[in-house]
Write a protein that binds this DNA or RNA. Structure first.
Lengths: 109, 109
DNA sequence: ACAATATATCGTAATATTACGATATATTGT
DNA sequence: ACAATATATCGTAATATTACGATATATTGT
């Protein structure tokens, strides 16, 4: 149905999935890399750096803002985007915890 | 268009996005948690553990297999699934590297 | 051989995502 | 006031994803 049954899973599982979505598209990986590298917000320079239409970049930024991993400061006519450190660390820890569940090889396979 | 322009991004960005997709749905987070915890493969017990139809679980397993983060050993009539340690570590490092790009707070925002 | 069991695949429906052109919005500099 | 600039949003089209019932497939135990 293309509709995820979120009510069925735990808060943590849904949040982890949402944080993963931030990285689940190459354009968003590229955006996050740019913002993380430059530290300073790159605002609409992102559009120049990416081979996508302005509307498409804006759409990806909106999704990243929804997840919370970036924030934008309106400074008309520009908008400054940058990593939201708090959520960045939340994501780092969320994935870290997930990866740490697995310890050692499986007995079968 | 719902179609991602993969040719436009780097190999690494596309791979990172694909690895993120493994975690980008709560059901897959749940599956990976179960497999990582139990070490041993849980085979079709996954269907019992998850509030989803057998066909849906099978579909998620197929996607995880495509990404490579799990592997299945056919042992008819059952199939044993477990974490693919190599790809698990690849994912851990991929996300680790991404998170490490960001050092310190931004100057603006 | 055949029932039972476990899993994959097919078909289908509904919704989500990706992409972009066009337009709306809002501010700055003249 | 108005052109220029930057960005968000709208509308739309195409494809992807999620979900599940039904069925196919393949093996074991009888």
């Amino acid at each position: 149905m293309g509709v995820t049954k979120t009510a069925i899973f735990t808060e943590q599982q849904n949040r982890a999935a949402d944080l993963a979505k931030a990285f689940a598209h190459p354009a968003r990986v590229a955006i996050l890399q740019l913002l993380a590298q430059k530290k300073a917000c790159v605002c609409g320079d992102l559009v120049d750096e990416l081979p996508l239409a302005q509307a498409t970049v804006s759409q990806h930024l909106k999704e990243l803002k929804r997840i919370g991993i970036i924030k934008g400061e309106i400074n008309p006519p520009r908008v400054c985007y940058c990593i939201n450190e708090v959520v960045w660390e939340e994501a780092r820890q969320t994935f870290g915890s997930l990866f740490d569940i697995y310890v050692g090889a499986s007995t079968c396979c």
